[in-house]
Amino acid sequence: MTPTLQIFLIVSAALFSIGLLAALSRRHAIFILIGIEMMLAAANLNFIAFWRFAPKPHQPPVGVMLALFSIAISAAEAAVGLAMIIAVYRHYRTTNVDQLDQLKG
């Protein structure tokens, strides 16, 4: 059996949904970050898969470049996000996002 583009996309959709699950369901702020990273990775997988399955190869390889830049951006996002978690923890002594509702309207 040779994997088709569809199968890759379904795997990435599954990865995305699991990331969403982690981001939505867990109370701990770190899980939200983990979930977001997984969703981004799913998007990267899509980029690479579309690049690989394109009937005509691109020059420069756009999908690969997009994935590279997206990885760099998500690394920056992770660093800032984790720093924010630490700062929030210091201030409120909790990382439970349910208790962080200062913006409540």
Binding site: S17, I18, L20, L21, A23, L24, S25, R26, R27, H28, I30, I85, I86, Y89, R93, T94, T95, N96, D98
Partner: peptide, 19 residues
């Protein structure tokens, strides 16, 4: 943020449905 970890028990099932 270790001191907080023990309290992490909640799980939101609506997230599962959406996902």
């Amino acid at each position: 943020t270790r001191r907080d970890i023990e309290k992490d028990r909640g799980f939101n099932w609506s997230g599962v449905i959406i996902a």
